[in-house]
Write a protein that binds this DNA or RNA. Structure first.
Ligand SMILES: [Mn+2]
Ligand SMILES: [Mn+2]
Ligand SMILES: [Zn+2]
Ligand SMILES: [Zn+2]
Lengths: 135, 135
DNA sequence: TTTTCACTTTAGAATTATTATAAACTAGAA
DNA sequence: TTCTAGTTTATAATAATTCTAAAGTGAAAA
């Protein structure tokens, strides 16, 4: 991902490209593979990596703005912390509770043969498959 | 579910059948259909239904003892609250985010045709399917 | 340029869910 | 009955997240 894309992500999230936000955005989006994180883990990694410390409130605000803009998604994981995902396409997850690690599964790698119809006047919005791992 | 079963559930959870615990257990298990709840919703319903108010700490403790004993399971739902489930068999869920309501799907009603193999030295512990509903 | 001001960052306070604590209470064995 | 381990409860503590309000910043207006 190029620098211009970072700026585009910020602008499309309604955010001015400040020093802190660019640093967060680069950390999140300038990578090959999907990145799964909690605000706490992101904060820890950012503090380790960068010179200037970014306030936790700024990280929360920026992450939420990206989520609202559709540049980050949220993954449901057991526990009290919220997990975010740089992969915003429809996909599934392996979860290793030993390491608290999420691993992406491409939507095409899971095929569901039989599924019940939605109740009453409802429709199916999306289907999430979560595969818990053990040793 | 009969009274003796309630006492059995309590005993097998390592809990003496006190007034409060019997009241909670009856409320949870003396019903036909599966019951999905948060500690907050359970507390609200118990307060409405019963004469004596049960301390929140007692509800937390009792629910956790039931969960540890395998009489309740936990369901991952978006948000910060923990959802519990009186259905402890392997099954799946519809989720209506409008009403925050979970609806059970029997394991046999979902058939997965293709699934990726577990990474490295890991095995699949279980597969949870979560179907989000919309109007 | 200097000024201006809307937008930002930040530390810390507030809120919410949950867990821990410790004192008063109770079931049930002795 | 008495005794005591186990229990209930109010309240404190903790943890994740959100709110607040004061100080900071930077681009555009004057
Ligand atoms: Mn969660
Ligand atoms: Mn949750
Ligand atoms: Zn993912
Ligand atoms: Zn269920």
């Amino acid at each position: 991902m190029k620098k211009t894309d970072i700026l585009k992500k910020l602008r499309s999230s309604g955010l001015r490209p400040t020093k802190q936000r660019v640093e967060i955005a680069k950390f999140l989006f300038e990578r090959e593979k999907t990145f799964h994180f909690t605000v706490e883990s992101l904060n820890r990694l950012l503090t380790k990596k960068s010179v200037s410390k970014i306030a936790l409130a700024t990280i929360y605000n920026t992450v939420h703005a990206f989520k609202t803009a559709g540049h980050l998604s949220e993954v449901e994981v057991r526990g009290n912390k919220t997990y975010f995902d740089t992969n915003v396409s429809n996909h599934h997850h392996f979860y290793d509770s030993e390491t608290s690690e999420l691993i992406d599964i491409d939507a095409s790698d899971i095929v569901i043969q039989k599924i019940p119809k939605a109740p009453n006047g409802k429709k199916i919005k999306n289907v999430e498959v979560f595969i818990n791992l053990k040793n």
